[in-house]
Amino acid sequence: MLLWLVFDLVLIGAIVWLAWAALAARDGFEMIVLFMVLGLFVALAWVRLQAPDVALAEAAVGSGITGALLLKTWRHRRGRAAGDAAADARPSRALGFGVMGLVTVLTGMLAAVLVLIPRPAPSLAETVFANLAVSGVDNPVTAVLLNFRAYDTLLEVVVLFAVVVVVWLLGDAEADRRAPRLGSIFFGFARLVLPVMVLIAGYLLWLGGFAPGGAFQAGAVLGAVGIVLLLGRLYTPTAADRLPARLVFGLGTVGFAGAGLATLALGNAFLGYPPEAAKTWILVIEAMLTVSIAATLAGLFFGAAPSGRPTRESDR
């Protein structure tokens, strides 16, 4: 037990130190790399707290894809000292101390209130486990996401769709053509790894029914496949890809909402699956979500509505 305590303290210390170091880092690149490492350490802590599903998503999305997006933006702004502390207006000493004081008071209050909560606190866990058998899946997190609170997940997919609309409104595909080429070794690596990643995504999707995994983790891995394709110039979207891209982005929302309308047509409540076929419904919805999430994440990395004609040049 003492060993665990030491482990916990070291891990928490490392997490807090990494957060501080990332946000106080002198240059932007250093900040982003430290932030990505922080994401991995946070994921490790969540594994320790028996949250493997979430840890998987945090490592893939919170650390990986967010990191890729940050690096892309940092590169875009390079030469303009993006993220560098030197570009920061230096706050006056009084302001620095004032903010520090306020933050200390706030965190102190947050901690004190937390300690005052009587334990064990009530929770919904028992209700979830009691209804798990009729949910159609054995993984409680998947049951909450796709059945008990499926409406939340529907709205979450809508958030992803909304952000694609905003990014397409803002993006400039031309700017992206200036991105560096990664060369033949990366190409060979991608060719070797991509099929395996697709396999892993499928495995995670299937696994989500009864073990840690599911549509979001699978979508994140598949989205990473898209990012590798884009980075290695193995696939360059062109104007002709706009319509298919729109279709795939919308698939998650339309598929999920359509499933809701179908349940209404069956005479059930909105998103109330027929109990005997719940597993099939959930799996079909999850498969659509996985494809849509993956395309959306890759599309967000691309960062614009694709334009231009297909190019014949290759950098193999």
């Binding site: 060369g183 070794i185 990366f186 690596f189 070797l192 395996v196």
Partner: peptide, 13 residues
């Protein structure tokens, strides 16, 4: 195997 593959590639990059 995959870590070796990834670290070789990223090292190269």
């Amino acid at each position: 195997f995959f870590v070796v593959l990834a670290s070789a590639t990223s090292g190269h990059l």
